[in-house]
């Protein structure tokens, strides 16, 4: 079974995690059109590649972000959403 690293609890088998879907920024609901909102709600970036995703470590109740390649299933890094800015800065 694949391993995934929770930023708080460390490396665990995938069975301890729940997939939370792609991490996406909603459009401003006050200014976007109905069509834009419908697209946000239903459409997905379906093509394979590097994606930011929500993952949840069940035993500890920890949500975090994983940067994962959806084709190779390799995880580049994981971090708490709150640390996202820091992580981006560090990698620059």
């Amino acid at each position: 079974m694949k391993l995934l690293t929770c930023p708080i609890n460390g490396t665990r088998p995938l069975s301890e995690f729940i997939f939370g879907g792609e991490y996406r920024q909603a459009p401003d609901q006050n200014t976007c059109s109905d069509a834009e909102w419908a697209a946000y709600v239903h459409n997905r970036q379906g093509a394979p590649g590097d994606k930011k995703e929500w993952w949840y470590h069940s035993p500890s109740g920890t949500w975090f972000i994983a940067e994962r390649n959806t084709q190779t299933d390799k995880v580049a890094r994981t971090y708490l959403l709150a640390d996202a800015k820091k992580v981006v800065k560090e990698s620059k």
Binding site: I18, G20, W54, Y56, G61, W63, L80, L81, A82
Partner: peptide
């Protein structure tokens, strides 16, 4: 509860 936790992360 899980969704509440996620929203907590997002909404701060």
């Amino acid at each position: 509860y899980r969704e509440m936790q996620r929203c907590q992360q997002e909404w701060r």
